[in-house]
Design a protein around this nucleic acid. Structure first.
Lengths: 220, 220
DNA sequence: AATAATATTTAACAATTTCTTAACATAACA
DNA sequence: TGTTATGTTAAGAAATTGTTAAATATTATT
């Protein structure tokens, strides 16, 4: 796991860097926001630890800027903040922070928070194979099996079904599905329905359920 | 969810108001800061959208003033700002803003930011599953179970029952129920009763009780 | 590069569900 | 007993999703 550490104080960089490396993380450091953005793009860290208070470009601006970069859009960001600066908490989350740790920093606490953070997200996204009923979906192989028979799904169909299967039973809102599968691109009103139809043709009508006025869910 | 929109340009008020209402928000508008503070105190919005640049009393002053008023101290505030005025970002957060959106405004983006903002703050106490007696309601699944059998409810019915179940025993005023489920749309006098009837048909007559002259409550 | 094969989106219309209304009935209350 | 608020029902309006086929895009193949 790779971590990029950003703080203007050299002592803190040293101190944290030492503690994180001891835990087995690969660590790089930057002493200002601009540099951090540069390094991040090449280093591709799993997590960026950002000090909120920095001269020139503060943590929140840095965070916002990072979130604008597509290749870094889902890197985790953790803020370090002095206890007094409570105002920044919401601003930070608004800018896309994933967690907060207040100074003074206790290494043990920080590390447990980091691990929790990495676990939380890796658990979600690392579910590469999902088995439900007679269905078996594998994101790495881009393959769907139904009662041990391969079923071919086109890319969009696959992504859509996989998305619904990530949380069986949960209703995904139409708009959320569209944002997730199509991004911000504008797609017509009936496009989603057509894809649902195609999937239903292939796996039967029983798995994907419509919740009118809300969205769709995958359920047995 | 109630939103107060503050901008000195009538066109923008119109445009945003239309888009927000379409999303189901209850919207009021003000064309200057002073008026905004007045309206906010009576309207009690969940969110105030403030244009930074306004004659007389600008957005930041308005924001500061609102934050001084105890009854409004935890209303969310979102700033609209022209891309050029980057200077204002820090000033805005210092004054108590919760988020920023830059002009020109893309309605979809604005709405997703608003939702994110409202979600972050309201999610904390939002109960997703409620168990009472033989009833089990799950908002994520949009599902109602009665003695372990699924019962289908249409969206309005579901929302209505869920709303009543959030505080069992509490009498919800007719008008509050209507504002909550329908927003500010004008619905006829008997519409609520009809929905109550439909729910009672499905879960029996014992759960939802009428308090004449006041409203309804969910109780065992 | 041209062609064929797939995939994706759109558009038109159908089918279905949900919601609201209106008219009248009934119950509560003063 | 009259007044007011809520209950009930059924009809049709409105909203949402389903379905199909054709139009575009995209990708693979010769």
């Amino acid at each position: 796991m790779k971590i990029l550490l950003v703080d203007d104080e050299y002592d803190i960089l040293e101190f944290l860097s030492y503690n994180l490396k001891k835990e087995g993380f690969v660590v790089k450091t930057a002493n200002n926001g601009k540099l951090a953005v540069d390094i991040a793009q090449r280093f591709k860290p799993d997590l960026i630890i950002l000090d909120v208070m920095m001269p020139e470009m503060d943590g929140i601006s840095t965070c916002s800027e990072i979130r604008e970069i597509p290749s870094l859009s889902d890197v985790l960001i953790l803020f370090l903040t002095a206890r007094a600066e409570e105002y920044s908490e919401l601003a930070g989350f608004a800018a896309g922070a994933d967690d907060y740790v207040t100074k003074p920093i206790k290494p043990k606490l920080l590390i447990s928070r980091i691990k929790a953070l990495l676990k939380r997200t890796s658990n979600k996204s690392q579910q590469k194979v999902i088995n439900i009923g007679d269905l078996h979906i594998d994101i790495d192989k881009y393959e769907l099996m139904f009662k041990n028979n391969k079923i071919h799904l086109a890319k969009k169909e696959f992504n859509l079904l996989y998305y619904l299967m990530t949380v069986p039973g949960k209703v995904f809102l139409r708009e959320d599905i569209i944002t997730n599968i199509w991004g911000e691109a504008h797609v017509g009103d009936r496009t989603l329905d057509v894809h649902i139809r195609k999937i239903r043709e292939k796996i039967g009508e029983n798995y994907i359920k419509t919740v009118k006025g809300v969205g769709y869910k995958f359920d047995i």
